[in-house]
């Protein structure tokens, strides 16, 4: 760290964590909504849950878990001086984000094609509990999808900083914080997947 501007690593990381806590509370609110309506409409939630495709949900789970691995390893790579490996892994993470969003596009397209989207005529004919399930599903996975896109953009910007050596083996907190954000995206999905796709019984 010789000759560098003083940076408070603990402070920077702690600030990121504080931000992540607000994100946890934001999604926590949506999970409270889910759990309250699950308690009220347990049968309807199962009927609606069976409509969701486990392959899309499960596939995207594998994609996000793997992307999280890439980000985690990229930090170790950068700190060991393996810049090219680090950039490759971050590129892989952004590719995972793209695969995730493409899956989401096909998944949502199929649902919308079957008349299942907020405010649709078909949804109004369903039981109130099923309508609520799909509305919260779109709200939660939609907000999560926005986070995936933002996360990918942040990682792309971090890659640019690494390429120009502004983030390097001695000064990596930006990559650390970008990684923390990406892991949060993974964390939220870890709960979305069983609650929405695996509610079969």
């Amino acid at each position: 760290m010789s000759g560098h501007i003083h940076k408070d690593y603990t402070g920077a990381k702690f600030g990121m964590w504080l931000f992540l806590f607000t994100e946890v509370l934001l999604f926590g609110g949506l999970f409270i909504l889910y759990s309250v309506y699950l308690a009220r409409y347990p049968k309807e939630f199962i009927t609606a849950g069976k409509e969701l495709n486990v392959w899309f949900g499960g596939g995207n789970t594998l994609v996000l878990l793997t992307s999280s691995l890439f980000v985690a390893v990229s930090i170790t790579a950068l700190r060991r001086g393996a810049k090219r490996l680090c950039l490759g892994l971050l590129g892989g993470t952004i590719a995972c984000a793209a695969i995730f969003m493409i899956n989401k596009y096909f998944e949502w397209s199929a649902k919308i094609h079957h008349g299942i989207y907020p405010g649709s005529a078909h949804l109004k004919e369903l039981q109130p509990g099923e309508m609520v399930f799909f509305n919260i599903y779109y709200l939660t996975t939609g907000l999560h999808g926005i986070h995936v896109v933002i996360g990918a953009l942040i990682l792309a910007w971090t890659m640019f900083l690494i390429k120009s050596d502004r983030v390097n083996a001695n000064d990596w907190v930006i990559l650390e914080n970008a990684g923390l954000y990406w892991h949060l995206v993974d964390l939220i999905w870890i709960f979305i997947f069983p609650l929405y796709y695996l509610i079969l019984h």
Partner: peptide, 25 residues
């Protein structure tokens, strides 16, 4: 498993989340 399905699912999800937070993060 009746009502247990949701609790098992949440238990496993919490375990996975714990691994991500502890090691990846």
């Amino acid at each position: 498993f009746g009502a247990w399905n949701i609790w098992i699912a949440l238990g496993i999800a919490t375990l996975k989340a714990g691994l991500v937070v502890a090691v990846f993060m």
